[in-house]
Amino acid sequence: MTEHNTSPGRWSDLERPPLNAPALRRGLIVPDGLWTSCDVVTATGSTNSDLAARAAAGAAEGAVLVAEEQTAGRGRLDRSWTAPARSGLFFSVLLRPAVPAERLGWLPLLTGVAVATGLARAAGVDTALKWPNDLLVTVDGEERKAGGILAERAGDDAVVVGVGLNVSLREDELPVPTAGSLALAGAVSLDRDTLLRAVLRSLERWYGDWRAADGDPALSGIQEAYAAGCATLGRPVRAQLPGDRELLGEAVAVDGDGRLVLRTAAGERHAVSAGDVVHLRGTG
């Protein structure tokens, strides 16, 4: 039985119900489908770390691990990711893509496209992508980060892709003022079961197309879809590069290797494969 919280908190258990693991498994695990298992845990440090351990032990492709709360969630550059229990979607998937190694860099970008298209259908929210791995929503006309993606190699042939997405966070629960959530963006649905199914079905479709195209981003349609949904393109940015270097320019393209191409004021083009990118306000 569900234990009801009688304390006068901002949220009750009824407002943030737990995920329905059996229903998720029934809806996602189908014959000849990608998803082979779906486990929901009350809390863990990091779903990526847990699933990487399962991958090392031989877990099959298509394993999904969801946590109602992550106590040591990680983003890029080892940044932490925390949120109240049952306030979002915090999950990882295990993939074993038989594609050329140089194309694996497309997996976080592909996942961004899948999450954005899944949420557009299920939540009615326009989710933009900030290169390389942030999910943005618009709150009161302002761009805010509502989620992130982290892809990590797990052995020779496995990749674990983790997604963290703020669903029901209110303004006074945000970790930083620049954060957002689906609730603050006016989502038509905050039902996490529905949202998770939509995102995973979208990921199955995009991953299947990409894998069938041998990881080719153009042939699979991923490169075009990412460019169409990427809020970074067409605007001035500052790229903070490894080695305490930075590069200023206009983001003009995402190339075939998933790198962000910047054009400097001098007209030079530089492809950025790693680093932080800051969106700058236009001068116009």
Rank of each mutant, 00 (worst) to 15 (best):
2 T>D: 03
3 E>P: 05
5 N>P: 00
5 N>V: 12
8 P>V: 01
10 R>N: 00
13 D>L: 11
13 D>K: 12
15 E>R: 15
19 L>G: 02
19 L>V: 01
19 L>C: 04
22 P>A: 01
22 P>Y: 01
23 A>N: 07
26 R>Q: 14
29 I>Q: 03
32 D>N: 15
33 G>V: 01
37 S>D: 14
37 S>Q: 14
42 T>I: 07
43 A>G: 03
47 T>V: 05
48 N>Y: 10
51 L>C: 06
54 R>K: 14
55 A>Q: 11
55 A>G: 06
58 G>E: 07
59 A>Q: 13
62 G>D: 09
63 A>P: 01
65 L>R: 15
68 E>H: 15
71 T>V: 13
71 T>P: 11
72 A>S: 13
74 R>I: 00
74 R>C: 02
74 R>Y: 06
75 G>S: 10
76 R>D: 01
76 R>E: 03
76 R>L: 00
77 L>K: 15
82 T>D: 10
83 A>G: 04
84 P>L: 04
89 L>M: 09
90 F>Q: 14
91 F>M: 09
93 V>S: 07
94 L>E: 09
94 L>V: 08
96 R>Y: 07
97 P>S: 10
97 P>E: 08
98 A>T: 14
100 P>C: 02
101 A>L: 13
102 E>C: 06
104 L>S: 05
105 G>V: 05
105 G>K: 02
106 W>P: 05
111 T>E: 02
115 V>Q: 12
117 T>G: 00
118 G>M: 09
122 A>Y: 12
132 P>I: 06
133 N>I: 01
134 D>E: 09
134 D>W: 13
138 T>N: 09
138 T>E: 15
140 D>G: 04
140 D>M: 04
146 A>F: 08
147 G>C: 02
147 G>Y: 04
148 G>H: 10
149 I>G: 07
152 E>H: 08
155 G>H: 12
160 V>C: 06
162 G>P: 13
162 G>W: 12
171 E>I: 07
172 D>H: 15
175 P>I: 00
176 V>P: 00
176 V>Y: 09
179 A>D: 08
181 S>T: 08
184 L>Y: 12
187 A>C: 09
188 V>A: 15
189 S>E: 05
189 S>P: 03
189 S>C: 04
195 L>C: 01
196 L>I: 13
198 A>L: 02
199 V>C: 08
201 R>H: 11
202 S>H: 11
206 W>C: 01
207 Y>H: 14
208 G>S: 05
208 G>V: 04
208 G>Y: 08
209 D>H: 14
210 W>M: 00
210 W>K: 03
211 R>L: 08
212 A>H: 14
213 A>S: 06
214 D>W: 13
215 G>D: 01
216 D>K: 06
218 A>W: 10
221 G>A: 07
226 Y>Q: 09
229 G>P: 10
232 T>E: 04
237 V>S: 09
238 R>M: 05
240 Q>F: 10
242 P>E: 10
243 G>M: 03
247 L>R: 15
247 L>S: 04
248 L>Y: 15
253 A>Y: 12
255 D>L: 01
260 L>P: 10
268 E>Q: 15
269 R>M: 00
270 H>V: 12
270 H>N: 04
270 H>T: 12
272 V>M: 03
272 V>T: 10
275 G>P: 13
275 G>A: 06
